[in-house]
Every structure is written in C-alpha cells, then in structure tokens.
Write a protein that binds this DNA or RNA. Structure first.
Length: 198
DNA sequence: CATATGATTCCA
DNA sequence: GGAATCATATGA
C-alpha cells in the first residue's frame, strides 16, 4: 500500500520552502507497466526563485523551454544541459511566479539496483529515465509523482552549485540536503563521521 | 545564420 | 585539469 501523493496545495509555496520540504520525500515512477515500480528518497534539492533570481532559467522570461515554470505548481520542468544531461525540476508557488526546485540527488529505495547512484542531477534523472519528453507533466495526476516523507531529516543549507555567473544571487543558501545521507552529490570535504552510526 | 555557454559528469 | 557534446538564447 503506497502513501498518498502530494497534492497541488503542497506545491503552491515558494521554492525555498518547497525545496526544504522535499528532502526526505519519495519520487515514485510507475510510468512503464512492464518495469517494476521505482522509488527513491530525495536527499538533495536547490531552490530557484523566479525571474528576478539571476541563477534561474526563468530569468529569460517565457520561452518554449521555460513556459512550464510560469504555469501551475506541481508540474515537471526538465531541461537538457551540457549536451548530455537531463535535469528534473518541480514547479511551485503558482502561475507567473516561475519558482522551481531542482532535484539533485536521491537514494534508491525500490526498483533500482541497491548500488545504483542517484547522486547528482544528471544521474538522478537518468536513473529514472526522465527526459525533456517528461517536461510539463502534472505530478499530481500522472504516473510520476511524489509522496510525503515519514520523518523530518536534519537539513543542511549551502550555496547552490554551478551558478557562479549569477553574481549576488550565487551565494544564497538555497541548496538543501539531508545531513545524514551518504547519497549527497557534493558532500562536505570534512565529511568523515557524517551519516548513520555503524 | 553564427556564436557562446551552461542548474554536469567522466576520465586522465 | 580538461574534454565531451548540443539545446537554448542572443545577436547579426
């Protein structure tokens, strides 16, 4: 018996709030009936605060690519980057706000090889087979959806990755991760001792 | 039409 | 440290 999926209202909050709330939630993929259900626990996210945020793709306004971010909360925004990677995002807050949350890492729970790597936005999307074809999909209605977390994780906030060009927006602490997870994409350099007790 | 670059990953 | 590799945005 699977948990109930997150509803529209849950997504209708600003990106920083949603990005934090997303840590520990589960992404469920039952798009392919021929494959077993795939589930991962999200352990790392980044918030993008709409057009004024110079690190956000929505800064360029409404284009074919960014249109979904300007629409209803709770949809997938998937973009292709560096000629080889798809990245999975979740739209939030509401029409015209263009807030979004990038899912940067997860830990495999079901349907994956137990050693599958879901750390890093490119690897995460690839593990689920999420591509630009999935951009615009409604996460409150389709076969790709999110379920609430069971326990509140210890959340660590840092600056976002790869946005140095965004000037004063680059240093905002809008990257969030589960400090107890060993599946974070860029663990702190002095990370020994982090994680579950042995 | 031409060009620059990126919300990254992998290899040396 | 540097390459891979191309969609997207922007300017001619």
């Amino acid at each position: 018996m699977s948990a109930q999926r997150l509803r529209r209202e849950w997504y209708e909050r600003d990106a920083m709030t949603v990005a934090r709330a997303l840590i520990g939630c589960r992404l469920v993929d039952e798009r392919d009936p021929a494959r077993p259900l795939r589930v991962a626990r999200i352990v790392e996210t980044e918030a993008y605060r709409g057009p004024k945020d110079q690190a956000s793709h929505s800064r360029v306004g409404i284009t074919a690519r960014t249109r979904v971010m300007f629409g209803e909360a709770g949809h997938a925004y998937v973009f292709f980057i560096y000629g080889m990677h798809d990245c999975f995002n979740i739209t939030c807050f509401g029409p015209g706000r263009a807030h979004a949350v990038l899912v940067r890492a997860g830990e495999p729970m079901a349907g994956f090889d137990p050693h599958a790597r879901l750390d890093g936005p490119g690897r995460f999307a690839r593990a689920f087979g999420i591509t630009r074809a999935d951009s615009g999909g409604d996460l409150t209605q389709g076969r790709l959806y999110l379920c609430p977390r069971e326990k509140r994780p210890r959340i660590v906030a840092t600056a976002r990755v790869g946005v140095a060009y965004a000037e004063e927006w680059a240093d905002r602490p809008w990257r969030f991760y589960d400090g107890a997870s060993r599946h974070v994409s860029r663990p702190p350099k002095n990370a020994i001792g982090r994680g579950q007790p042995a």
